[in-house]
Write a protein that binds this DNA or RNA. Structure first.
Lengths: 138, 138
DNA sequence: ATAATGGATGCGAATGATTCGCAAATCAAC
DNA sequence: GTTGATTTGCGAATCATTCGCATCCATTAT
């Protein structure tokens, strides 16, 4: 099971998307800006491979389909249920939590990656609407 | 936008699944053990409704499709990449983290719900395989 | 009561994401 | 350079999820 060039290109696309979280189609678009093109089915297979390898992790945002991000151990995602926006904040504080969780789990589970997701209402949406979640893209 | 009886039944099904995390089809199966049956499309619509209402949250486990759980603010999910098993641990410790995140976000984001997901290898899988993630259901 | 209004539901068809099956291409090792 | 295994391209198949529309229900106004 090698890290072939298609797979590398997929990984690069995801890593190169700093901040944004691509879905499969966007990954394909990014990869296929260079020749030779990679077939969509292969993109999916590469994604599976990269996830299994722990290089990439899947995340579920507001939408119905899966997005991908480079595994970097520590993303905290703020997902606004109003507008669907996603902001990611750097994972410095959670280290302490991770440590204590790790202590609690001792031996029973070996953590490879983690992520945290907060859903709620961003400032703009809480201004424009009284009831959070009552409006937006979806 | 009422909490109709179909929607209630969907909510009960999800709440009744203590521990397990149902996907849409499983919710439908649970709901339709009682008459009258609820059409799958309505199940989906109810799920949307409940998510928007903040009563239910979507989670992404190992698989490719979405699962649902009662929003209870504090689930930490341990997902094993080997066997696909999911264990949930109670959310006592994260309170502190939430507080400090809340402080850091002051005003910019109003948190309604949160969840955290650790992926890695459970004990059994790390025993049976040297390389984590190299084997399993998927 | 009755009619009028605005969701909510059932139903089947449509959509769209993801996967499969298979043949050709690539790569590694002998 | 032949063998064997893995990967890729390709289109068809599958599966989850959503849509359109007619009907139904509950609530409010007449």
């Amino acid at each position: 099971m090698r890290l072939t060039s298609s797979r590398q290109r997929v990984l690069e696309a995801i890593r190169g998307a700093r901040g944004r979280h691509l879905d499969a189609r966007e990954v394909a678009a990014a990869v296929n800006r260079r020749r030779p093109e990679v077939h969509l089915a292969t993109i999916y297979r590469s994604l599976q491979y990269l996830v299994r390898r722990g290089l990439v992790s899947r995340i579920l945002l507001n939408e119905d389909h899966v997005h991908y991000e480079a595994a970097h151990n520590g993303g905290v995602h703020l997902v606004c249920t109003g507008c669907g926006g996603v902001r990611e904040i750097a994972g410095s504080q959670p280290q302490r939590l991770l440590q204590s969780l790790g202590r609690a789990l001792r031996g029973r589970f070996e953590v490879a990656d983690w992520q945290m997701q907060l859903s709620g209402t961003c400032r703009r949406c809480s201004r424009t609407a009284a009831r959070p979640g009552a409006r937006g893209k979806r």
